[in-house]
């Protein structure tokens, strides 16, 4: 079956992660057509109906979209957090003016 995805909504990385996560269950062939991506999806082993395949793919894709939003919005605070947790803390104390 073919699933069409709007690339202005779902990034390449987001689709790639979705395809990777499902790669034990689904074979996916991706084709970029302008702003839309056509993904030819077929079950590898498990017996899934086309409706189930579509549901599985889109739910997984939406989860990765949510993760992408979280990762983008928290990128800077995550960097600060790791620096504060694992760098030599003294070097990260604010300097007196």
């Amino acid at each position: 079956m073919i699933i069409e995805v709007d690339r202005s909504v779902y990034s390449d990385a987001c689709i790639t992660k979705c395809v990777y996560a499902l790669s034990n269950d689904l074979d996916c062939r991706r084709t970029l057509c302008g702003e839309r991506e056509r993904i030819e999806v077929s079950p590898r082993v498990v017996d899934l109906s086309p409706a189930e395949v579509q549901h599985l793919f889109l739910c997984t894709l939406n989860d990765y979209k949510a993760r992408e939003v979280i990762a983008t919005e928290t990128h800077d605070i995550r960097t600060i957090l790791y620096a504060k947790a694992f760098a030599d803390c003294d070097e990260f104390e604010e300097m007196a003016p």
Binding site: I77, I80, L81, Y82, K84, A85, F86
Partner: peptide, 21 residues
């Protein structure tokens, strides 16, 4: 979630992360 861009208790958050490693 946090009500400020940099949470006031980020130090505690960082300490807990460090403890896990």
């Amino acid at each position: 979630i946090s009500e400020s861009r940099v949470p006031a208790n980020l130090g505690i958050y960082a300490s807990r992360l460090r403890e896990k490693k």
